[in-house]
């Protein structure tokens, strides 16, 4: 069984965001990019699945040349080969999903792992859109997964608990923290990744269905008040919460 893992190349979560000159995207100066943290769970789960059932783990990313770093990271963890679907222009989730679906079909992958969310645009929708385009089942925010023959039993995290969901392959699973512990890339893995193939091709051209008009910083918060340095400040705190903030 061929297994696809879709990975996105995102700014490190510690990045201080500065708005770029175009006022539509971030200023790239000094920004370090990493593999999307949720996609590490996706890569790990793909590798574990391969260890059990065999097959090939194919890493796919839509982006520009710099996304190769993130593909390389997944290869270093143990994935077999990579595909970069190249596009210099910004894409919304819909057009990313179209390109991914197109490639997943070409690679004939019955099982696809994605992260539950990309920590740049925080959309959490690419997996679901891709699954609809392909006619695959899709289970999102998965924290526990069992696959046997054609059958999938997954636990997904929702408000107030976990939903146990049953479905069949072909399917897309979006991964959440808790599903597994992503392995570190060993030195051997990093060396081996250098020899693995990253195929490059233009991403399928499609139109965006949404357009960013403006990026801006949220209004700054007014500096707060330090009410005291010990428990003598408690009565005032309670009074403010009750009378000024009116939240208790």
């Amino acid at each position: 069984m061929n297994i696809a893992v879709c990975v996105s190349h995102v700014p490190d979560t510690a990045t201080r965001i500065v708005i770029g000159k175009d006022e539509k995207s971030i200023d790239q100066a000094g920004v370090t990019y990493i593999i999307n943290p949720y996609d590490e769970f996706a890569v790990e789960e793909a590798l574990k699945t391969k260890e059990k059932f065999g097959g090939e783990v194919i890493v796919i990313s839509v982006g520009n040349d710099s996304s190769k770093e993130t593909i390389r990271k997944a290869l270093a963890m143990g994935a077999d080969r990579g595909i970069l679907l190249k596009d210099e222009n910004p894409r919304d989730s819909f057009s990313i999903a179209k390109a991914l679906a197109d490639e997943i079909k070409i690679q004939n992958c019955e099982l696809v792992f994605m992260g539950k969310q990309s920590v740049d645009y925080d959309n959490s929708i690419t997996g679901q859109i891709t699954s609809e385009l392909l006619g695959y089942s899709c289970i999102t925010i998965v924290v526990d997964l069992k696959i046997e023959n054609n059958k999938i039993i997954a636990e997904r995290e929702i408000e107030g608990g976990k939903e146990v969901v049953e479905s069949e392959l072909p399917a897309i699973i979006t991964t959440q923290k808790g599903l597994n512990e992503p392995r570190y890339a060993s030195l051997k893995g990093i060396m081996a990744a250098k020899k693995k193939v990253i195929e490059e091709k233009p991403a399928l051209q499609t139109d965006n269905l949404t357009e960013v008009l403006l990026m801006k910083k949220p209004a700054p918060k007014n500096p707060g008040r330090i009410l005291g340095t010990d428990s003598s400040a408690i009565p005032e705190l309670v009074k403010l919460l009750h009378e000024e903030a009116k939240v208790i």
Binding site: I17, D207, L213, K216, K217, P218
Partner: peptide, 20 residues
């Protein structure tokens, strides 16, 4: 119609319009 949503975990906001 223009919607505002947080991106980069709320470190920035974007105004977005539909093309559909």
């Amino acid at each position: 119609f223009i919607a505002t949503r947080p991106v980069y975990a709320g470190k920035a906001l974007v105004d977005v319009k539909f093309r559909s």
